[in-house]
Design a binder for these strands. Structure first.
Length: 271
DNA sequence: CGTGTGCCCTGACAGC
DNA sequence: TGCTGTCAGGGCACAC
């Protein structure tokens, strides 16, 4: 379920227990997720100290004191379990520190784990082509105007494109388009300047609200058997097929398919 | 190049 | 109670 807010929440949660700690043991329970685990992963991580955790787009980064950074992606179903009471059959990678255990659990195995040099992390191919962070200074109307110029593809699919904005997924694209009053089928290149001007705070607000939500539910994760990666958010359109619009209750939420995935929007207030 | 399609994988749920 | 079909928050390879 992880989109940007879930990854951010996960990274913050991990940091509380992992930052500054020495990794005593790393166990791989299978050879790969989406890709094979890096061959040197266990050797490099074992005995290393964690010196920082951060997020880029939907990737979590764990910096080690050996000049390497472990990069994880949670795919569709990944999450970190902290101090699990019982092993799960989908715990594919397990890390032990002196005081805690961290299990990367991912039933669908669409996630990934990579190891890269910390110094050159920005030129890692998966990072080099990413667009600006939605919560950073790079997301501006000028950037969007330029990135969407001439696009005939729908704005919904444009916003899912990580090269245009990094970190948006299906839920928050639907929610942001609803907040900004933009029809998901509108061509990217035809979204007007006033709409783009509304879209940026719409994106920032919906992501910030979710992170805040996740952050508050992190309290629950303080328990030794806590799990990371899930939190409840109240959505305005996502999954609300047939229900009245929260802005204008004469509008109805409708579900359509775009690029093989579902989009929810209000038939009345999104133009 | 831009755009569209199908697939990787397991689990949850609806309907019969 | 099984079975079957559908869908799921992501990203990539591939075809045109």
């Amino acid at each position: 379920m992880p989109e940007l807010p879930e990854v951010e929440t996960t990274v913050r949660g991990l940091a509380r227990f992992l930052d500054g700690e020495r990794i005593e043991r790393v166990v791989l329970n299978r050879p790969n997720l989406r890709r094979p685990f890096p061959p040197e992963l266990v050797q490099i991580m074992t005995g290393a100290r964690v010196i920082g955790l951060s997020r880029r787009a939907k990737y979590g980064l764990i910096d080690l004191d050996r000049g390497s950074t472990m990069i994880f992606h949670l795919g569709m179903s990944g999450r970190w379990r902290i101090d699990p009471e019982e092993p799960d059959r989908h715990d594919h990678l397990v890390i032990d520190t002196a005081d805690h255990q961290f299990a990367l659990c991912d039933p669908r195995r669409f996630g990934s784990v990579d190891l890269e040099a910390t110094e050159t992390i920005d030129s890692w191919p998966q990072f080099a082509s990413l667009g600006p962070e939605p919560l950073g200074p790079g997301l501006t109307v000028e950037h969007l105007k330029a990135a969407l110029k001439g696009k005939v593809q729908s704005i919904k699919l444009c916003l899912l494109d990580q090269r245009i904005i990094a970190g948006l997924g299906n839920i928050y694209v639907c929610e942001a388009l609803w907040r900004a009053g933009i029809h998901p089928r509108k061509a990217g290149g035809k979204v007007t300047r006033p709409q783009l001007t509304r879209l940026i705070p719409a994106i920032r607000d919906v992501l910030s609200a979710s992170i805040k939500d996740g952050g508050s539910s992190l309290r629950d994760y303080a328990a030794p058997d806590g799990e990371l990666g899930y939190f409840a958010t109240r959505f305005d359109v996502y999954g609300r097929t047939g229900e009245p619009c929260r802005r204008d209750d004469s509008g109805k939420v409708r579900r359509i398919a775009q690029g093989g995935r579902s989009t929810w929007y209000c038939t009345k207030c999104q133009k």
